[in-house]
Protein backbone atom coordinates (compact mmCIF):
# COMPACT_ATOMS: atom_id res chain seq x y z
CA UNK A 1 0.00 0.00 0.00
CA UNK A 2 2.74 2.48 0.90
CA UNK A 3 4.21 2.36 -2.60
CA UNK A 4 0.93 3.74 -4.00
CA UNK A 5 0.35 7.43 -4.54
CA UNK A 6 -1.81 8.81 -1.70
CA UNK A 7 -4.55 9.95 -4.10
CA UNK A 8 -4.71 6.58 -5.80
CA UNK A 9 -4.66 4.83 -2.44
CA UNK A 10 -7.52 6.96 -1.18
CA UNK A 11 -9.46 6.34 -4.40
CA UNK A 12 -9.12 2.57 -3.90
CA UNK A 13 -10.33 2.87 -0.34
CA UNK A 14 -13.20 5.09 -1.46
CA UNK A 15 -14.32 2.53 -4.02
CA UNK A 16 -14.27 -0.23 -1.40
CA UNK A 17 -15.85 1.95 1.27
CA UNK A 18 -18.72 3.17 -0.87
CA UNK A 19 -19.61 -0.26 -2.21
CA UNK A 20 -22.24 -1.01 0.45
CA UNK A 21 -25.94 -1.78 0.58
CA UNK A 22 -28.61 0.96 0.52
CA UNK A 23 -31.14 1.19 3.36
CA UNK A 24 -34.38 -0.68 3.06
CA UNK A 25 -37.45 1.47 2.29
CA UNK A 26 -39.41 0.37 5.38
CA UNK A 27 -36.77 2.04 7.57
CA UNK A 28 -38.29 5.41 6.65
CA UNK A 29 -41.68 4.41 7.98
CA UNK A 30 -40.14 2.87 11.12
CA UNK A 31 -38.39 6.15 11.83
CA UNK A 32 -41.59 8.14 11.43
CA UNK A 33 -43.35 5.85 13.90
CA UNK A 34 -40.44 6.07 16.31
CA UNK A 35 -40.34 9.87 16.30
CA UNK A 36 -44.10 9.99 16.92
CA UNK A 37 -43.68 7.62 19.87
CA UNK A 38 -40.77 9.64 21.29
CA UNK A 39 -42.61 12.93 20.92
CA UNK A 40 -45.74 11.54 22.54
CA UNK A 41 -43.71 10.08 25.41
CA UNK A 42 -41.97 13.40 26.08
CA UNK A 43 -45.24 15.32 26.04
CA UNK A 44 -46.90 12.78 28.36
CA UNK A 45 -43.96 12.81 30.77
CA UNK A 46 -43.96 16.59 31.00
CA UNK A 47 -47.75 16.64 31.34
CA UNK A 48 -47.49 13.98 34.06
CA UNK A 49 -44.92 15.97 36.02
CA UNK A 50 -47.00 19.12 35.82
CA UNK A 51 -50.16 17.20 36.78
CA UNK A 52 -48.38 15.75 39.84
CA UNK A 53 -47.20 19.23 40.81
CA UNK A 54 -50.73 20.64 40.35
CA UNK A 55 -52.21 17.74 42.34
CA UNK A 56 -49.69 18.27 45.13
CA UNK A 57 -50.51 21.99 45.27
CA UNK A 58 -54.24 21.23 45.47
CA UNK A 59 -53.72 18.69 48.27
CA UNK A 60 -51.42 21.02 50.20
CA UNK A 61 -53.86 23.90 49.78
CA UNK A 62 -56.80 21.73 50.86
CA UNK A 63 -54.89 20.53 53.92
CA UNK A 64 -54.01 24.09 54.88
CA UNK A 65 -57.65 25.11 54.41
CA UNK A 66 -58.95 22.26 56.57
CA UNK A 67 -56.24 22.73 59.24
CA UNK A 68 -55.90 26.48 59.77
CA UNK A 69 -53.32 26.01 62.51
CA UNK A 70 -50.44 28.47 62.04
CA UNK A 71 -47.72 25.79 61.87
CA UNK A 72 -49.77 23.61 59.49
CA UNK A 73 -50.33 26.54 57.14
CA UNK A 74 -46.66 27.51 57.33
CA UNK A 75 -45.54 23.95 56.52
CA UNK A 76 -47.99 23.65 53.61
CA UNK A 77 -46.87 27.01 52.26
CA UNK A 78 -43.22 25.96 52.46
CA UNK A 79 -43.91 22.68 50.68
CA UNK A 80 -46.03 24.48 48.05
CA UNK A 81 -43.15 26.82 47.30
CA UNK A 82 -40.81 23.85 46.89
CA UNK A 83 -43.31 22.16 44.52
CA UNK A 84 -43.59 25.33 42.42
CA UNK A 85 -39.81 25.65 42.31
CA UNK A 86 -39.42 21.99 41.30
CA UNK A 87 -42.06 22.34 38.54
CA UNK A 88 -40.35 25.44 37.16
CA UNK A 89 -37.03 23.60 37.27
CA UNK A 90 -38.50 20.65 35.39
CA UNK A 91 -39.90 22.96 32.71
CA UNK A 92 -36.48 24.52 32.30
CA UNK A 93 -34.90 21.07 31.89
CA UNK A 94 -37.43 20.09 29.24
CA UNK A 95 -36.86 23.34 27.40
CA UNK A 96 -33.22 22.31 26.97
CA UNK A 97 -34.25 19.06 25.31
CA UNK A 98 -35.87 20.88 22.41
CA UNK A 99 -32.82 22.89 21.49
CA UNK A 100 -31.32 22.24 18.03
CA UNK A 101 -27.92 20.59 17.67
CA UNK A 102 -24.87 22.81 17.33
CA UNK A 103 -23.56 23.93 13.95
CA UNK A 104 -20.27 22.04 13.99
CA UNK A 105 -18.83 18.95 15.64
CA UNK A 106 -16.52 21.08 17.77
CA UNK A 107 -19.42 23.23 18.89
CA UNK A 108 -21.54 20.13 19.44
CA UNK A 109 -18.94 18.71 21.80
CA UNK A 110 -18.71 22.00 23.67
CA UNK A 111 -22.50 22.09 23.93
CA UNK A 112 -22.68 18.49 25.15
CA UNK A 113 -20.03 19.21 27.79
CA UNK A 114 -21.93 22.30 28.93
CA UNK A 115 -25.13 20.24 29.18
CA UNK A 116 -23.37 17.68 31.39
CA UNK A 117 -22.03 20.43 33.65
CA UNK A 118 -25.47 21.99 33.96
CA UNK A 119 -26.98 18.61 34.74
CA UNK A 120 -24.43 18.17 37.52
CA UNK A 121 -25.37 21.61 38.86
CA UNK A 122 -29.04 20.65 38.69
CA UNK A 123 -28.26 17.49 40.68
CA UNK A 124 -26.66 19.74 43.28
CA UNK A 125 -29.95 21.64 43.35
CA UNK A 126 -31.78 18.33 43.83
CA UNK A 127 -29.87 17.84 47.11
CA UNK A 128 -31.06 21.30 48.10
CA UNK A 129 -34.65 20.40 47.22
CA UNK A 130 -34.46 17.20 49.26
CA UNK A 131 -32.89 19.03 52.19
CA UNK A 132 -35.60 21.72 51.97
CA UNK A 133 -38.40 19.12 51.95
CA UNK A 134 -36.91 17.27 54.91
CA UNK A 135 -36.34 20.53 56.77
CA UNK A 136 -40.06 21.28 56.46
CA UNK A 137 -41.38 17.74 56.80
CA UNK A 138 -39.47 16.43 59.82
CA UNK A 139 -40.36 19.25 62.26
CA UNK A 140 -43.93 19.34 60.91
CA UNK A 141 -44.39 15.58 61.27
CA UNK A 142 -42.91 15.73 64.74
CA UNK A 143 -45.33 18.53 65.57
CA UNK A 144 -48.29 16.61 64.12
CA UNK A 145 -47.41 13.37 65.87
CA UNK A 146 -46.33 14.63 69.27
CA UNK A 147 -47.79 18.08 69.85
CA UNK A 148 -50.91 17.96 67.71
CA UNK A 149 -54.48 17.86 69.01
CA UNK A 150 -54.75 14.05 68.81
CA UNK A 151 -52.30 11.34 69.88
CA UNK A 152 -51.11 9.17 66.96
CA UNK A 153 -51.39 5.39 66.83
CA UNK A 154 -48.07 3.47 66.71
CA UNK A 155 -48.93 2.30 63.19
CA UNK A 156 -49.28 5.91 61.99
CA UNK A 157 -45.97 6.78 63.57
CA UNK A 158 -44.12 3.96 61.80
CA UNK A 159 -45.88 4.56 58.47
CA UNK A 160 -45.20 8.28 58.51
CA UNK A 161 -41.51 8.17 59.32
CA UNK A 162 -41.01 4.97 57.31
CA UNK A 163 -42.48 6.55 54.20
CA UNK A 164 -40.37 9.67 54.66
CA UNK A 165 -37.20 7.61 55.08
CA UNK A 166 -38.00 5.47 52.01
CA UNK A 167 -38.70 8.55 49.92
CA UNK A 168 -35.45 10.19 50.99
CA UNK A 169 -33.40 7.05 50.24
CA UNK A 170 -35.05 6.66 46.81
CA UNK A 171 -34.34 10.27 45.86
CA UNK A 172 -30.73 10.06 47.11
CA UNK A 173 -30.12 6.84 45.15
CA UNK A 174 -31.55 8.34 41.95
CA UNK A 175 -29.47 11.50 42.34
CA UNK A 176 -26.26 9.57 43.02
CA UNK A 177 -26.81 7.20 40.07
CA UNK A 178 -27.53 10.07 37.67
CA UNK A 179 -24.52 12.01 38.91
CA UNK A 180 -22.25 9.00 38.40
CA UNK A 181 -23.56 8.46 34.85
CA UNK A 182 -23.24 12.16 34.02
CA UNK A 183 -19.66 12.37 35.30
CA UNK A 184 -18.73 9.34 33.19
CA UNK A 185 -20.29 10.95 30.12
CA UNK A 186 -18.55 14.25 30.88
CA UNK A 187 -15.14 12.54 31.19
CA UNK A 188 -15.64 10.84 27.82
CA UNK A 189 -16.74 14.08 26.13
CA UNK A 190 -13.78 15.98 27.56
CA UNK A 191 -11.45 13.21 26.42
CA UNK A 192 -12.89 13.51 22.89
CA UNK A 193 -12.49 17.28 22.90
CA UNK A 194 -8.99 17.03 24.34
CA UNK A 195 -7.92 14.78 21.45
CA UNK A 196 -9.51 17.12 18.96
CA UNK A 197 -7.90 20.27 20.38
CA UNK A 198 -4.53 18.64 20.68
CA UNK A 199 -4.19 18.53 16.92
CA UNK A 200 -6.04 21.74 16.15
Amino acid sequence: MTQHEPVEELREWMADWQDAAAPSPQIVEEIRLRVRRQSRRMVWMLAGELAIAAGALILLGRFAFLHPDLLDVAAMTGLSLLVVWAAAFSLRLHRGLWRPSAATTEAFLALSIERCRRRLRSLGAAWGLLAGELAVFIPWLWYRLHLGPSAPAARDYVLTYGFLALLAVAVMSAVLATARRTRRELRELERLRGGSEGDG
Binding site: W13, M14, W17, Q18, A103, T104, T105, E106, A107
Partner: peptide, 26 residues
Protein backbone atom coordinates in the same frame (compact mmCIF):
# COMPACT_ATOMS: atom_id res chain seq x y z
CA UNK B 1 -9.09 6.63 17.26
CA UNK B 2 -12.13 8.87 16.94
CA UNK B 3 -10.54 11.86 15.24
CA UNK B 4 -8.81 10.09 12.31
CA UNK B 5 -11.87 7.88 12.01
CA UNK B 6 -14.14 10.90 11.55
CA UNK B 7 -11.99 12.64 8.99
CA UNK B 8 -11.32 9.46 7.02
CA UNK B 9 -14.99 8.51 6.96
CA UNK B 10 -15.84 11.89 5.46
CA UNK B 11 -13.01 11.67 2.93
CA UNK B 12 -14.02 8.15 1.94
CA UNK B 13 -17.53 9.45 1.24
CA UNK B 14 -15.94 11.79 -1.30
CA UNK B 15 -16.29 15.07 0.57
CA UNK B 16 -13.84 17.80 -0.43
CA UNK B 17 -11.47 19.37 2.10
CA UNK B 18 -13.74 22.41 2.20
CA UNK B 19 -16.79 20.28 2.94
CA UNK B 20 -14.96 18.29 5.64
CA UNK B 21 -13.84 21.57 7.20
CA UNK B 22 -17.49 22.71 7.30
CA UNK B 23 -18.67 19.47 8.86
CA UNK B 24 -15.99 19.37 11.58
CA UNK B 25 -15.72 23.12 12.19
CA UNK B 26 -11.98 23.30 11.47
Amino acid sequence: PLEPRQILTLALEGLSHKEIAEVLGI
